[in-house]
Design a protein around this nucleic acid. Structure first.
Lengths: 247, 247
DNA sequence: TATCATTAACGAACAGTGTTCTTAAAGAAC
DNA sequence: GTTCTTTAAGAACACTGTTCGTTAATGATA
């Protein structure tokens, strides 16, 4: 058994200490001047710190408390600059989108530009799976995301897609990209059942009840370089669907 | 200031009480025989209870502790039948999928059956948004889900879609259905920024930087009966894309 | 029938979470 | 020099999933 103090002990003792020194006189307060200078808090600093944590440890590593600790402060301090976690998430998402480089307009065909934009969005999410996680639990808001939407709308317009189909199409395309990136991430992190186990389940599926699953299970799982091919295929399919359903 | 005991007080006192009565003699133990008879726990009972909570209160209302409380037991009791929350989620998801009714094979064209199946999956997720939530955080495993996949694969096969395209296409179609259902749910529950606020953001977008967003914002938001139309459109588009990219 | 081994059940505790309330310090304005 | 306002931060609240260890009841064995 450990001989050190438990969390609760420490909590109790610090509380006691705090209370002891509350009797107005003799308060023990360390002036902030005596401590090393700290950058003053700001939303920008908070978001930047959170984004760094996200990149290093994923969404789970980016709690309010962990961000606060990284900034060497208490969790409540953050609430001056950010209303809640949901909001911080959306700021971080937009901050991440800042790293997105869209092809210069006028470069290549509209389709090249469209796929270029979506591909660089895809790569960003793959490189930084935390962003993919966030984008599923957060309604994206912010300039960078709007720029991406605007860019796609413009490309689709150039491609002769009608306004309504374009409006619904952006959604479809972005949904697709985010989902594939997120799916890849979910499968990578080891839950109760690993991808391999799933593979086994499909491979060993009862051939009487599930003949198609049995015969297709080679095609169902793609990895490595195949992912790019599959991603491209879905993009192509989705785009063609949009173009054909012009209304 | 409240005069009642805090959680921590109660914790402390009960712990004390517990320890006091540990001295072998004079133990205060309520025989289980004296309590009203309780159904014995089982995975099935746990999953059923969890699913009920999910339907009533969504994913947030389906924690291990809440399920345990609903079963009038402690949280640890559940771990005999279920390894962790993730696993419970996947059981609940499959349990929900049990309510899915797929069109009889041989009824209508392959496309009718395909869309019929996807539509009833969609309706199930809309009626029970908790399921949509789960399906995003959980790799679906279980017989019911495999039946759905098998059904779709069979329909696509009948429609002349190649094996590879079919395998990738199921994914695309299911991803689409889940995403739309989930999106609708996310927008409904009021976060920091309501759908209306988002609408405003788009409506008031700078017409110089975002001309397309400005001119298309009517089309970007659909609700009510329009949702069905939009859902159908996306389905049609996705399917056509799959068919055209036969490889 | 009495003893033993097994197991389901479950309370307590641990280590976390987001958020709020309150108070203290610092800086600005008068 | 005194007020007012903003920023910071500690403590507390009400949760979360999961683990550990101890009971109480059950079924099998002697």
């Amino acid at each position: 058994m450990s001989n050190s103090l438990s969390n609760k002990d420490v909590e109790f003792l610090t509380a006691l200490y705090y209370k002891e020194n509350m009797n107005n006189t003799n308060r023990v307060i360390v002036s902030r001047r005596d401590r090393p200078a700290k950058d003053p808090l700001s939303r920008e600093l908070i978001v930047r710190t959170a984004y760094e944590l996200l990149k290093e440890q994923g969404l789970a590593g980016m709690s309010m408390r962990k961000v606060a600790k990284a900034l060497d402060t208490g969790p409540s301090s953050l609430y001056v600059y950010v209303n809640n976690l949901e909001e911080l998430n959306s700021y971080v998402l937009d901050s991440g989108l800042g790293e997105l480089v869209l092809p210069d307009s006028g470069e290549g065909s509209w389709k090249d530009r469209l796929f270029g934009a979506l591909n660089s969005y895809f790569l960003l999410l793959i490189e930084n799976p935390g962003l993919a996680e966030i984008s599923f639990s957060t309604i994206p808001r912010g300039d960078k995301y709007m720029e991406l939407i605007e860019y796609i709308l413009a490309a689709l317009h150039e491609g002769g897609v009608s306004p309504k189909s374009a409006a619904w199409g952006v959604d479809l395309l972005l949904l697709y990209v985010t989902s594939i990136a997120f799916e890849k991430h979910t499968w990578r992190k080891n839950g109760t059942m690993q991808p391999l186990d799933i593979k086994e389940t499909f491979k060993n599926a009862d051939p009487i009840r599930f003949p198609f699953i049995r015969s297709l299970n080679e095609q169902m799982f793609s990895e490595g370089t195949e992912l790019q091919e599959r991603f491209r295929w879905g993009l192509e399919a989705t785009l063609q669907g949009i173009q054909l359903n012009n209304k």
